[in-house]
Design a protein around this nucleic acid. Structure first.
Lengths: 248, 248
DNA sequence: ACAAAAGTGTTGTACGTACACCCATGA
DNA sequence: TCATGGGTGTACGTACAACACTTTTGT
């Protein structure tokens, strides 16, 4: 039961006449720092469809909502099946249910998530040994902006998720969700720059996040090419306070 | 077909085993200015359930999603069936789908809407003559904060919708959606005060909305108890620009 | 004349932006 | 010693809150 997962929108729960089926998909964002490139990029995993409609096209990871699982749980499940990772942030994005968005009637509850930057020293084969069965051949990471055209209305969905990410980074403190536990202010600034697509003043950025009181400075420094930079940790006390009165 | 509407969550599309049914509900906000009261209140319509579960309890207006209608259309339809009015604002709120939120498995796509203040001079019987069959005996308007306990998880939903309303009024210009075409700045301020639950400085409020360039001053004045106040009209050019890259 | 709401002016504070400047390290 | 990023200081403009003040009507 745990391994009988096909690609997106496969394993449909016997489609009957007039039935409206409910799917759950997730836009998963992560960060990629290519060695050599000076800027980080926002990336997302896509899965290749193995059947009609849109066979062989790339699509968002997802699956059918099971009768005994909550929406959040379904999003977490498909996320884990695709990336083998636990999200640092998970939030419902929107419910897409236009009649013509799929040949059959499908209402997709779409989530969006952040996963921390993968440590590049772990090879793909090593990572696969950790978890069970997320078939890497049908999953690939793409640049969040320049990805190929997607199946269904998933292009619009990714566009909307990106808008929400950029928007939320302005008033919330979710950027740390893309970073490991310890990070420098330059790391954090790089995340903001990758998301917003523009350079930020290092001096002003420093004061902004220092005044927000969401970061805890440590006594460790990252030594590198030049003057060592202080390492910070995110204040977990803000995890719960960030969201509004969501139904949880 | 157009009149075979029962109360909320009735007329279910033959509930089979393991089937996940999709409903659409809407939190409809309007404004009530009681004659005599000095402040306006935010009110919302509720419908009384006529069958189990939660028989005779108040609940949000809604109904089952039809196989051939979009989510937005379903929200508009149930809204019209309940109030007989056209909304000045309609937006998806959230998809609620916890397993235990209803005895059977129901995923509710919830919208929230604003309808303009009803002209109190039209009596209920006159208004009923306009539209067809929204049975007024099972629909009643309540204060948005002090309404009675609701069926299902609708208390949480209303709470969340109120949070969204208060939130959105801070950065968007949707408050005019509760007012008629022509209104004074005091009218508009009263809306903000009713939503936010606190008094606002008339002088600062005036400058804020004037600088936003979303209001068009007319040459008409409302004469009343004291110095006449200029009437304003909302600039419709901002209708489309307000929302982000929503899937439309 | 007076009360009360409409409307204008002024001031202080907070915050974001631009940018000059010093500090500490590796090469 | 020099280049480079880490880190501090300062000045300016905008936005908002507080509040004094003038204007215009009905009674």
């Amino acid at each position: 039961m745990t391994t009988t997962r096909g690609p997106v929108h496969a394993a449909q729960p016997d489609a009957r006449e007039d039935g409206i089926r409910v799917a759950v998909s997730t836009v998963i964002f992560s960060l990629r720092r290519d060695t050599g490139a000076d800027r980080a990029r926002v990336v997302l995993p896509l899965v290749r469809r193995t059947r009609e409609p849109y066979e062989s096209a790339w699509a968002l990871p997802g699956g059918w909502l099971r009768p005994d699982e909550n929406l959040d749980a379904a999003a977490s499940r498909t996320l884990a099946e695709t990336t083998g990772l636990a999200p640092s942030f998970l939030e419902q994005l929107y419910a897409f249910g236009d009649v013509d968005r799929s040949p059959s009637r499908v209402v997709s509850i779409v989530y969006w998530a952040l996963v921390r930057e993968e440590v590049s020293s772990i090879s793909a084969s090593t990572a696969a040994a950790h978890d069970d069965n997320h078939d890497d051949e049908n999953v690939a990471w793409f640049d969040a902006i320049t990805h190929p055209p997607l199946a269904f209305d998933h292009d619009q969905i990714v566009e909307y998720a990106l808008w929400r990410l950029r928007n939320k980074v302005g008033y919330s403190r979710i950027a740390h969700g893309l970073l490991p536990d310890l990070f420098t202010l330059a790391d954090l600034r790089e995340v903001y720059e990758a998301i917003l697509g523009r350079r930020l003043d290092p001096a002003n950025f420093r004061r902004q996040v220092e005044n927000s009181d969401t970061l805890i400075p440590t006594d460790d420094y990252r030594t590198g090419s030049h003057r060592p930079a202080r390492l910070y940790r995110y204040d977990e006390a803000f995890e719960l306070a960030e969201r509004g009165p969501l139904p949880h």
